[in-house]
Amino acid sequence: MNEDRSEPVDDGRSEDLIRELARELEPVQPLPPLRFVVGGLLGLWALVAAVGVAVLGSRPDLAQAWLGRGGVAFVFGGLGLAGVAGLAASVALGVPGRERLVRLALLAAGVGMVLAAGGGSLLFLESAMPWNGGGFRADLDCLAVALVVGIFPGLGVVAFAGRAAAFRPVVLVVAAAASAAALGTIVAQASCPMVNLRHLLMGHALAPAVGVLVLSVPLLVALRRIGRVG
């Protein structure tokens, strides 16, 4: 172990500092366990998602669209996994000593993305749905829904990280933005009536990448404004 190599090299300054820190010590409230934080953020997302679906209306063939085509289920199951795991990773990035959880969560998020990509490939190879349909405007609408819904858990992560001690704020907000948009796009899929592969990929499956491009900077600014970084 490293500490066994250490020798007393202090010239007294560190002891002064320790006395000073102890003198000004005040009680603190420890952060809640991370599982409660992640659970709370998912609860927030579920609430916003329910409101979103209520406002936008759910597609009539919801069950068929999700379960009828294996590829679609893979795409959104994968995005859901990536969203939840990415959210857990970004929360854990705000707390020292949780690197193992960060690694596991990022691994799970990666698996989710692979599943989503596999589902998309399956749909493409099986020609399970027509390629064209809708347009660029429809893609933007669904991406906007994903981002609007996603910004809530994204801001929740930032609010938590602002109270915690984020060492890698950029990685944290990138993970938060991608996972928030991944969760948001599930709501877009639940309300989007379009059945074509191009729209599924451009307007839905690309949401995490668009989330990173659009949400990362505002989330980073918010984190720097409200939070303790370092």
Binding site: R13, S14, L17, I18, L21, V28, Q29, P30, L31, P33, G94, V95, P96, G97, R163, A164, A165, R228, G230
Partner: peptide
Amino acid sequence: AQDVLLRIHTARHTYHPE
């Protein structure tokens, strides 16, 4: 090492007691 002590001080609420 002193910087670490200061960081421990400011981040002490992020340690979970369990």
